[in-house]
Design a protein around this nucleic acid. Sequence first.
DNA 1: CTCATCTCAGCAAGACTGAGATGT
DNA 2: CACATCTCAGTCTTGCTGAGATGA
Lengths: 156, 156
Amino acid sequence: MKIAHENVPGRLRSLPTRLINQTALLAARATEQALADTGSRRYHYAVLTTLREAGAASQAELGRRTRIDRSDMVAVLNDLVARGFAARDADPQDRRRNIVTLTEAGSAHLDDLDRRLDRAQDELLAALSAVERRTLVDLLTRILDAHPESAAPGRT
Amino acid sequence: MKIAHENVPGRLRSLPTRLINQTALLAARATEQALADTGSRRYHYAVLTTLREAGAASQAELGRRTRIDRSDMVAVLNDLVARGFAARDADPQDRRRNIVTLTEAGSAHLDDLDRRLDRAQDELLAALSAVERRTLVDLLTRILDAHPESAAPGRT
DNA sequence: CTCATCTCAGCAAGACTGAGATGT
DNA sequence: CACATCTCAGTCTTGCTGAGATGA
């Protein structure tokens, strides 16, 4: 096994928690750049794409699906609604809830974001083959699935 | 390919940048818990282990090795020095520099941190076999090695 | 009464920036 | 002079907490 990570010595270089952390920084930068000038961030995308895939939902439900905190969800939706990408209407069945819907403009915006994020994946994973990328996704998915409870500490 | 990541729909569930991000959160939590009550954090560990593996160095050099910002390095060393885990002495050869050394107490503290972090790796990667863990480390290392420049934006 | 939902205010950690003082 | 080093002050983002108001 050849290793060559300039300047970063052995133990640190092969500590999984640290590797993941450092990679996450690269991922964040790639995503950030890709979304630059769209006015949207990771969490806007997460909400929009979830709305498309799983349909309209309450804020609490969206939070569960995206793992975005209830508290932050408020701000994200303020944003999306202000930009006309989502609609927030009172639920007649349960007046505590807001029903959040994806608008036409939101759907178009999401198409743009999707294209940009595809490019970001490619930039981040440039060094890996298609098979390796799938392996990586599989391994990470399994790690995440093995930690269901720690998904959102303090939220039931 | 079987996928089952409750509540999180398809696209989001398989977006590498997002998977890495979410996994990094788990990694951070595992690390945080493992280091609880030691008074140390990730970056304390990074500096201490780098001192042991690559020897005494200036703050700037330590920053390059650990990818910790020059600015944050100051605070980390203030901490380590105050706790007697590292010594910071003026370099007689180049008086701009401080030479940072690992102390006896620092070495003992590092042993403790090392043991704790081993446990954190195990907890994070519980779902993966030894081979898979090596594969993961390999893939992540290759991603990182392919992005040398974005290691520390703004620092040369 | 208990519980869920939405909202607001605010915290803490981490990554980073800019600028000044000092020295090569 | 340009450049490197150390330090300080402060910014921005993200993830999270606590508490209040409303309603099922």
